[in-house]
Design a protein around this nucleic acid. Structure first.
Length: 727
DNA sequence: ACACTGTGAGTTTTT
DNA sequence: CTCACAGTGT
């Protein structure tokens, strides 16, 4: 381990081994480096046992990265350091402690989809007017109640929620409990409950986890704060790292006060400020500092850098989102011609919905890209189906999973049948599956219909425990004749769905191969697998590949850096989002999000906005985001101009002369025969040159051409938009 | 009783 | 554009 690569401040943070430490780490100031070196220092220099260390992060990605980097720094014991996400830590702890709260250890974690579907049923059953409260609204209220306080019921009363909301919440909690299921928020809350009510458990973890590190501390919510506090209050070897300016999860209950008041919570805490930025040019930092300085109540800090030169910030005013996408793509293509690599570029946006157009143009330019987030592999219906069967096998009380699979494949069981079954089940106090398996008091017709499913479970129960995970899943697929179901009922998408199932099986195989039960963890593979899947986030699914342009939301971009960043859709109502416009606190969070986005760029930053944009179907005109002006990259638009959309972007005044003008936006030309290429045609692509059409997929606007270029490479293009001409 | 088709509404960010 | 639901067909 080499501490000489650290600057004085970083080194100070690394070497302050005992006692509470707050590291205020500005963007790009080497926060991860400090965390990883600190862990290494504790082990190698202070002689702390690796298993006495706990590092908590928010994302799996961050946890994985930290694990890898620590691994390369320490000479021994890296694998016994606990590096977890908050949720992962709680899930693990609960799998051995949750029975103390009256749950079975084989609990299930409900993801957002399952949560919403459960709330939907409650809205129906309680006759709540769904015009007053949508599923989404209720789930937001519930989550807020759980995230912002340790006593959600009390919280709902204190915030004067109407009776129906409180009743819905009670019912929600009851049904979760009946299903032996937890939502994401429960993982945290239950852990707090265990710690608070079972001192021996708390003592055990306190004794074991004597050195605690928390990443992104500004994003902790109430239960997370409490977990850290409970674990660390005694030995006080707690190091938290964060940046109040990058707190962007307020909507999820994150409380920025946790970091602002750390010194109060841990009196005598040492504070180290990391203000030297190693990532961006001075030009970019200036813009970042400009925006964020508009926020109030910040911890004072000023980022500085030694890198003074760099290209100016560009602002592109697009006529619409397609023009914007096309500008971005031609910028990338032109930089690549000059030697840049795809992986140098990131396109950041406020909402996932913005990725579609960008993808279309990236395809047409033949640029490889990867979209983070969006629809996760584990959210695909066929994948969820298979997993639901397994969840129900592992936790027979899991009613949501039962609802999902009872009529998939079709067994002729509709709402009427389900009503009968669920009434019978609740009368007998049984989970749905148990009621179905022991059909006392059910109509013969229903019993007959249920037989198909109950047979499956009788059969699969005998295999559970004796078969490896993949074999178990394969046996299950056979028993339910899933392939036949896909072939008959999902004809159009059969191939793709089947492929997903195969992919899932191979994922399981890998998982099983790498599975090594960790001491103190009495889980079997299935339990561990299901937990892993539940806590798998859509941003984790895709590993950072080299050679591709990265597309992601601003939230997902936190912690990452790129040579060139396109920050697009800078329009009032989109970014900042319309929901924030009237609320100064929300605007401040959007502003922090803007700060996060800007500080992702190492060298080049390109900002863009469109004068008109398609929003659910129809085109609406838009006004440039206030952030453009706040960053100091655009003159204040006069009110008149704002409406006409005539405000002119300009290029960083300081180096105006050096700035290139916007290249003429590439207009996709729909030549009469553009989409009439057929297999075998010789073509010329504007960027890739000569090639042959290898195949044609789809039709109309989704028509795709696979081209084999003469250099041997093959690429796929949207027929309507690719800059392709016949030769 | 279920499946399918057309209409109506609504969309932020994520463990 | 996508999800939820109502109404119709099997």
């Amino acid at each position: 381990m080499d501490l000489s690569i650290l600057n004085d401040r970083q080194r100070e943070a690394v070497e302050y081994a005992e006692g509470p430490l707050l590291v205020l780490a500005g963007a790009g100031s080497g926060k991860t480096r400090v965390l990883t070196h600190r862990i290494a220092y504790l082990i190698e220099h202070e002689g702390i046992a690796p298993y006495n260390i706990l590092a908590l992060t928010f994302t799996n990605k961050a946890a994985r990265e930290m694990r890898e980097r620590v691994n390369s720094l320490v000479s021994y014991g890296a694998s016994s350091i606990w590096v977890f996400t908050f949720h992962g830590f709680c899930a693990r702890l609960l799998s051995s402690e949750i029975d103390k709260l009256g749950y079975k250890r084989s609990y299930t974690i409900y993801d957002e989809q399952e949560q919403l579907s459960l709330i939907g049923k409650i809205i129906k059953d309680l006759n709540i007017n769904d015009k007053d409260y949508s599923k989404r609204m209720l789930s937001d209220i519930f989550s807020k109640a759980k995230n912002q306080s340790l006593n959600p019921v009390e919280y709902l009363e204190l915030t004067f929620q109407p009776r129906e909301v409180r009743e819905a919440f009670r019912e929600y909690e009851k049904r979760l409990k009946d299903s032996n299921a937890l939502d994401f928020d429960d993982l945290l809350l239950f852990t707090v409950r265990i710690f608070e009510n079972f001192p021996d458990v708390l003592d055990y973890y306190r004794d074991r986890l004597r050195y605690i590190l928390v990443d992104e501390y500004q994003d902790t919510n109430m239960p997370q704060y409490r977990i850290v506090e409970l674990l660390a209050k005694q030995h006080r070897n707690i190091c938290v790292v964060g940046d109040d300016d990058q707190s962007i999860y307020g909507w999820r209950g994150a409380d920025i006060r946790n970091i602002l008041e750390f010194e109060k919570d841990f009196p005598g805490a040492k504070v180290v400020r990391l203000e030297q930025n190693y990532r961006s040019t001075a030009i970019i930092l200036k813009a970042a500092n400009n925006v964020i300085s508009k926020n109030s109540g910040r911890k004072p800090k000023t980022l500085w850098t030694q890198v003074t030169s760099g290209p100016p910030i560009e602002v592109y005013q697009a006529s619409d989102e397609r023009d914007e996408a096309s500008y971005i793509c031609s910028s990338i293509a032109s930089a690549i011609r000059k030697g840049a690599r795809c992986s140098d570029f990131a396109i950041l946006y406020r909402t996932h919905s913005q990725s579609r157009v960008l993808e279309m143009y990236l395809k047409s330019f033949g640029l490889d890209y990867i979209v983070y987030g969006g629809i996760s592999f584990f959210a695909r219906a066929e994948v969820k189906d298979v997993i639901a069967y397994l969840k129900l096998l592992y936790n027979p009380a899991d009613n949501e999973s039962f609802y999902r699979i009872i009529n998939t494949p079709k067994r002729g069981i509709g709402s009427k049948s389900l009503e009968e079954l669920s009434e019978n089940a609740s009368k007998r106090g049984l989970p749905l599956l148990a009621a179905a398996m022991d059909p006392e008091g059910l109509s013969p017709a229903l019993i007959k219909k249920l037989e198909k499913l109950t047979k499956v479970y009788v059969e699969i129960y005998t295999s559970y425990g004796s078969l490896p995970l993949v074999k178990l899943a394969e046996r299950l697929l056979e028993l339910i004749e899933y392939d036949a179901y896909l072939a008959e009922d999902k004809k159009d998408t059969y191939e793709a769905r089947k492929e997903s199932v195969v992919e899932l099986l191979s994922y399981m195989l890998d998982y099983e191969k790498d599975f090594a039960p960790i001491e103190g963890d009495d889980d079997d593979v299935l339990a561990s697998f299901l937990k892993n899947v539940a806590l798998f986030s859509s941003t984790d699914s895709t590993s950072a590949e080299s050679g591709t342009v990265t597309l992601m939301t601003l939230h997902a971009a936190k912690g990452l850096e790129f040579d060139t960043v396109f920050l697009c859709g800078l329009e009032a109502g989109l970014f900042p989002t319309s929901k924030s416009l009237l609320n100064p606190e929300l605007i401040e969070e959007e502003r922090r999000l803007c700060y996060v986005g800007v500080t992702r760029a190492k060298r080049r930053l390109i900002l863009s906005y469109a004068l008109r944009r398609m929003r659910y179907g129809s085109t609406e005109s838009s006004v440039p985001s206030q952030f453009l002006e706040e960053m100091g990259v655009m003159k204040a638009a006069k009110p008149k101009e704002a409406m006409g959309g005539a405000s002119r972007p300009y290029y960083d005044g300081a180096s105006r002369a050096a700035a290139p003008g916007p290249t003429a936006p590439f207009k996709p030309t729909r030549t009469k025969d553009a989409s009439n290429f057929k297999t075998g045609d010789r073509i010329r692509h504007r960027i890739f040159g000569l090639g042959t059409v290898a195949s044609v997929e789809g039709s109309g606007s989704t028509k795709l051409l696979v081209i084999c270029f003469d250099n041997g490479q093959s690429r796929k293009f949207a027929a309507d938009f690719a800059p392709i001409t016949g030769v």
